[in-house]
């Protein structure tokens, strides 16, 4: 069959055809760093809040603060004012300065625990997932650690040592390691069964390279997300330890310490507890937002811009 003859349109009718309004303008792909931020608003908000907190902690001496340990018995439990932005506590210390300096303790503990627990948990989880005969023993030890609530374990470990930031970090890290190890082991066990790992074995890749190239990169995404949750949880545990007097020494300004000292007065002077609590909540929220956002962003199918 021959094709139908082309219909000749009068030239003026073609020229008169109205240009249709562009109802669907082409969607511009969100590229580059700003595109990434717009595609992942939770990462943006979380990261922005966290950066503010880090800046506060780093720049603490330049933010209109005074020495957070200076006592002033004539100016105890003052309400917030232009002079004492967050008021003063029962020993006359400036709460604003104490909260700002307290950010240093919380962030140090949060980040250190997240990094140390991730590294140790990654190592333990990799060994457990790859070395089958070691798996049973390692995981039973981890199960044993996990059967103790992390706060109790941290309190018990603190009871063995002196109160200091370093010891708090160690205590919380030990309590958090099993969660990372268990996660990494699970991921490693499922990755081992992936056809691309079998294909790599068939292609002559040696075991260390299989771990380095095929297993490790695919555990990093879930582990990074887990690390942010551990960071948030560590900051809360630090505050709890300080609150019950098992954390950093009372001479150090930490959010937990400030709240512990304000506890007796919280019905008459609620601002003493209020400001450190707000800072703790915002920081934990920021870290959790960052973690949730990263969980989505680190999915390689969506992460073109990263």
């Amino acid at each position: 069959m021959s094709p139908p003859p082309a219909i000749a349109l009068p030239a003026e009718s073609v020229a008169a055809a109205p240009t249709l309004p562009d109802l669907w303008p082409p969607v511009k792909p969100l590229r580059g760093f700003t595109g990434f931020l717009r595609r992942h608003p939770t990462v943006t908000i979380g990261a922005a809040l966290l950066i503010v907190m880090v800046l506060i902690a780093v720049l603490a001496p330049y933010l209109g603060t005074v020495d957070p340990t200076t006592l002033n018995t004539s100016r105890r439990t003052r309400e917030p004012s232009a002079l004492y932005w967050f008021g003063t506590d029962m020993l006359g210390r400036d709460i604003y300065s104490r909260v700002v300096y307290g950010a240093r303790v919380s962030l140090t503990v949060g980040f250190s625990v997240a990094i140390l627990a991730s590294i140790a948990g990654l190592a333990i989880g990799l060994v457990s997932g790859m070395v089958r005969w070691a798996d049973g023993f390692i995981m039973r030890v981890m199960d044993g650690l996990m059967s103790i609530p992390p706060i109790l374990l941290a309190i018990a470990l603190m009871a063995l040592t002196r109160g200091s930031v370093g010891n708090v970090v160690m205590a919380i890290t030990i309590a958090e390691i099993p969660r990372v190890a268990r996660l990494v082991r699970g991921v490693v066990l499922s990755l081992r069964e992936q056809p691309y790992v079998d294909a790599a074995v068939a292609a002559g890749t040696r075991m260390p390279m299989i771990i380095l190239r095929h297993i490790l990169p695919n555990t990093l995404a879930p582990m990074t997300v887990q690390a942010t949750y551990i960071c948030a949880s560590a900051m809360i545990v630090e505050a709890i330890l300080s609150f019950i007097g098992a954390g950093v020494p009372p001479t150090v300004a930490s959010w937990g310490n400030i709240m512990a000292e304000g506890r007796a007065l919280w019905q008459v002077k609620p601002f003493i507890v209020f400001f450190p609590a707000v800072f703790l909540s915002i920081t934990v929220l920021a870290v959790n937002l960052l973690g949730d956002g990263m969980r989505d962003a680190l999915d390689p199918r969506l992460a073109k811009g990263l």
């Binding site: 992936q194 056809p195 190239r213 990169p217």
Partner: peptide
């Protein structure tokens, strides 16, 4: 889908 390493 699972026979290629998504990170290579």
């Amino acid at each position: 889908f699972s026979s290629l390493n998504p990170r290579m």
